[in-house]
Simulated scan of single mutants.
Amino acid sequence: MFGIVRNRGRVRAALALAVVTVVTGCGALGATGPGASPGGNGLEKTTLKVSILPTTDLAPFWLAQDEGYFQAEGLTVESVIAASGQASLTKSISGDADIAFSTYPPFFTARSTGAADMQLVADATSVNAKSNAIVTVPNSPVKTIADLAGAKIAITAKNTASDLLTRSVMQDHNVDFGKVKWVLIPLPGIAAALQQGQADAAYLPEPYITQAAQTAGAIPVIDINTGATQDFPLTGYGATRKWVQENPKTLAAFQRAMQKATHDALFDRAKVEPLLVRFAKIDEDTAKLLTLPGYGSILDSRRLQRVPDLLLQLGAIPSPIDVNSMIGPQAGR
C-alpha cells in the first residue's frame, strides 16, 4: 500500500509559488477589474452549476465552497453529481451544468468528433507519485508488468484516462497490449472484481488504491507516475465555448476562487482530509493514508499538449489538436 503523500521538493515549491503569484495578482484584479467586485456586482450570473465526481481531485473545489471563496466572489456554486467524466461533460453540453469537471480525454475527444466545442477553463490535478497505479492481488497470475500481456485488465471505459495511461505504461515497457482483455468496471466495483477473479489487474487512482489494499489486499504492479506518463495532466474543468464567451466575468470569479483554494490545498493537507471524508465518502483512516494527486489550477498549454498527443499516438483521435485553441481566458493572465 502506498504511503502518505510528501512534498515533491523544488518542483512542488515552484508550482506553489506560481499559484501564490497568480492568486496575489488575481486579488488585485478582484479589487479593480471589471465585474470582479464582491457580492457579484457585474457578474453575468451569480448562481453557477458545476458537474463533478466525488473523487480526491475535487478537494480544492470543496475547499472553495467550505471556506467561502466562491461566496466572496459573489458566486453561489451548486454541485451536480455525474457518474463519469463523460457524463459530466454531457451535462455541460446539454446546459444542465455551466462548468464540467472531468479527466482530460473526454474534452479532446468531444472536440475531435465534433460533439462539442469545449474550452478548458481551469486545471485540477496531475498524476502524482503513487496516486495512480496498475494494481493486482496476491492470487492473480499477474506478478510483474510483463504479465499484463494477454491479461484481463479492469478499466472504467475505453479511451478514458484509465485506458490510455495503462496502455502508455505498457508501451513504455515493451508489453504488448494488443491481446489484453479489457474489462469495463466502474471504479467502486474494481476491488471486488479483482478479488473474484473477474480481472487479473486494474488501473486505479486514489482513494481506490488505498481502499483496494484494505479490502482486497491489492498491491501495485507499477506506478503510473513513470516514463511518458510522469506528472501527466489528469483532470480539469471545461465549459462550452458559447458559455465562456457569454460569461467572462463569472468565469473569472470562479477561477479566482479555485486558484485560492488550490493554493490552500497544496500547503495544508489538514484542510483537505476532512473534506474527503465529508464529500468523497472516504473514512478517516483512508483519508490519512491515501496519496493525494498533484493539485493545480492554472492551465499550461505546453503541459496539456501531452494529452491530445497521447490520444493521437494511441489512435483515440484521428488528427492532431492544438491545445492553445481550447484554452479559455484565465483570471490573472
Rank of each mutant, 00 (worst) to 15 (best):
M1L: 12
F2A: 12
I4W: 10
I4Q: 13
N7A: 15
L15R: 10
L15V: 14
L15G: 14
L15D: 14
T21C: 15
V22D: 13
V23Y: 11
T24C: 14
G27W: 10
A28N: 13
T32C: 13
G35F: 02
G40F: 02
N41Y: 06
T47R: 09
L53F: 11
P54H: 06
D57H: 04
Q65L: 12
Q65Y: 07
D66A: 11
F70S: 06
L75H: 06
T76V: 13
S79Q: 15
I81C: 12
I81Q: 12
S84Q: 15
S84H: 13
K91I: 15
D96N: 12
D98P: 00
F101C: 12
F107M: 01
F107T: 03
F107E: 00
F107W: 00
T109E: 07
T109H: 07
G114H: 10
G114A: 11
A115C: 13
A115E: 14
D117Y: 09
D117S: 07
Q119W: 12
Q119P: 15
V121P: 06
T125E: 03
T125Y: 06
N128F: 11
A129I: 08
S131E: 03
S131N: 06
S131Y: 04
N132F: 06
N132T: 07
N132K: 05
A133C: 14
A133L: 11
I134M: 11
V135S: 10
T136W: 02
N139W: 07
S140T: 01
V142Q: 05
V142P: 10
I145V: 08
A146S: 13
G150V: 01
A151V: 01
A151S: 14
K152D: 15
T160W: 14
A161H: 10
L164F: 06
L164N: 10
R167Y: 00
V169E: 04
V169C: 07
D172S: 07
F177E: 08
K179C: 15
V180T: 05
V180F: 06
V183M: 09
V183R: 03
L184T: 12
I185V: 05
P186Q: 08
P186Y: 10
I190M: 04
I190T: 01
I190A: 07
A192I: 02
L194N: 03
Q196N: 11
G197N: 05
A201D: 01
Y203T: 03
Y203V: 02
L204C: 05
A212E: 01
A213I: 01
Q214T: 15
G217E: 03
A218G: 04
A218D: 02
P220Q: 07
A228Y: 01
D231E: 15
L234E: 15
Y237A: 07
Y237W: 05
A239N: 04
T240M: 05
K242F: 05
V244T: 05
Q245S: 08
N247Q: 06
R256Q: 09
R256T: 09
R256P: 14
A257M: 07
Q259W: 15
A261G: 09
H263Y: 13
H263C: 15
D264Y: 11
A265V: 10
K271D: 08
V272A: 11
A280T: 02
A280G: 03
I282M: 13
T286L: 04
A287K: 00
L292I: 07
L299S: 03
L304K: 07
R306S: 10
P308M: 00
L310V: 00
L311N: 04
L312V: 00
L312D: 02
L314E: 08
I317N: 09
I317R: 14
S319D: 11
I321V: 01
V323D: 05
N324H: 04
I327N: 03
G328A: 06
